[in-house]
Amino acid sequence: MAALALRVCEQRASQAEEIVATLKRQLQLITSQATNSAGTAQTSQEVVRLQDENNSLTKQVEALKQRLCYLEIMNGKKQVQLPKVSSTATSSNKNDASPPKAAKTVEQSPTNPDNKGKPDQKKEKKQKKAEAETKKNAKNSKPIDISRLNLKIGHIVSVKKHPDADSLYVEEVNVGEESPRTIVSGLVRHIPIEGMQDRLAIFCCNLKPAKMRGILSQGMIMCASSPEKVEIINPPEGCVPGDRVVVEEYPGEPDTLLNPKKKIFEQIQPDLRTNDECIATYKGCKWTVKGKGICKAPTMAGFNIK
């Protein structure tokens, strides 16, 4: 029943549109004739009649269209508003066979198993690169002060003279790591071998390892120093290998490895000195091991620490 009514409405709408078109043509013709003949009362009346009839038919057409839409909806037909036809629409139809760009994007998304995780890998690489750059910038922005040095308490397990250098000792030092470090020190002329053996000292542990006469040195023992005399800086009592030496006024975590090109140690070293009480200081602030005390030289006051 609804289908029949739908067809009737469609026919009526089509007929009404044809009538409206015919009336418009007649109206234009009559208006033209009325203009040419200076118009008569009869022609004017005819024009008014046709205009009224045209308006009435237009309203009927609109009503029939609305009725048609209603019946189509009741029959399950979806109403879609048609876009305006333009010249660009015609030309775009030629490319309908090719897949849209949006579809390509979906096909290449990480959820597509055919991509074998490549987009994820690229994204992960970019993320890692950004994180590395951030860490690098953060490291470069750190202030250059004693907090950058990894100063640790170390126990000299064994010591011997360097086989190829009369002025160098080669020490095996426990600094609280899995295995001892080999450290080469130029102290032969200043400290007897007995004064080196089996003692605690302070070592800088994040200098870049360097070969000294063929033996790789992995750190440096910290000493008060002058051309005539050198004394090892003593840690406070109760220290154990691995304890960190800090300056409380300059908090911060040490670098994993000092970059020799940046010459960070060289910039810090001039401010490392013993004070009038032989206490090791940085810019006048004391070296300490937290909870255990201060670090100092045996007798040398007012000397650089190297």
Rank of each mutant, 00 (worst) to 15 (best):
L4I: 12
L6T: 13
C9P: 00
E10D: 10
R12P: 02
A13G: 05
S14V: 11
A21I: 01
K24C: 00
R25W: 00
Q26L: 08
Q28F: 06
Q28S: 13
L29F: 10
I30S: 09
T31A: 13
S32C: 13
Q33M: 14
N36F: 06
T40D: 06
T40L: 05
Q45N: 11
V47C: 07
V48C: 04
V48L: 09
R49F: 07
R49W: 06
Q51R: 10
E53N: 05
N54W: 09
N54G: 03
S56K: 13
K59L: 13
E62Y: 04
E62T: 13
L64R: 04
K65S: 03
L68I: 00
L68Y: 03
L71E: 12
I73Q: 15
K77E: 14
V80K: 07
Q81L: 13
L82D: 03
L82G: 01
S86T: 15
T88Q: 08
A89N: 08
S92E: 12
N93G: 09
N95Y: 11
D96W: 08
A97Q: 12
A97W: 13
P99Y: 07
P100M: 04
A103T: 12
A103Y: 08
A103G: 06
T105N: 08
T105L: 10
V106G: 05
Q108L: 15
S109Y: 11
P110M: 07
T111A: 09
P113W: 02
P113E: 09
P113M: 02
G117I: 04
K118H: 05
D120S: 06
K125V: 12
K128F: 00
E133G: 04
N137C: 05
S141I: 03
N150G: 09
I153K: 07
I153F: 02
S158T: 14
K160I: 01
K160W: 00
D166L: 03
D166S: 13
V170R: 10
V170M: 09
E172R: 07
V173K: 05
G176T: 01
P180H: 01
P180N: 04
T182K: 10
T182L: 05
G186A: 15
G186S: 14
L187Y: 07
V188S: 10
L200S: 05
I202E: 01
I202K: 03
F203E: 03
C204V: 15
C204R: 03
C205E: 02
K211S: 15
M212C: 05
M212L: 15
R213C: 03
L216A: 10
S217Y: 09
S217D: 04
Q218C: 08
I221D: 00
I221E: 06
M222P: 04
C223V: 14
V230W: 00
E231W: 01
P236A: 07
E237P: 00
G242R: 09
V246D: 07
Y250R: 02
G252Q: 11
P254I: 07
P254Y: 08
P254E: 07
D255F: 11
L257Y: 04
K261C: 08
K261I: 12
K263N: 15
I264Y: 09
F265I: 02
L272W: 04
R273M: 14
T274G: 06
N275R: 04
N275V: 05
D276P: 02
D276F: 10
C278P: 00
I294L: 09
C295L: 04
G302F: 10
F303T: 12
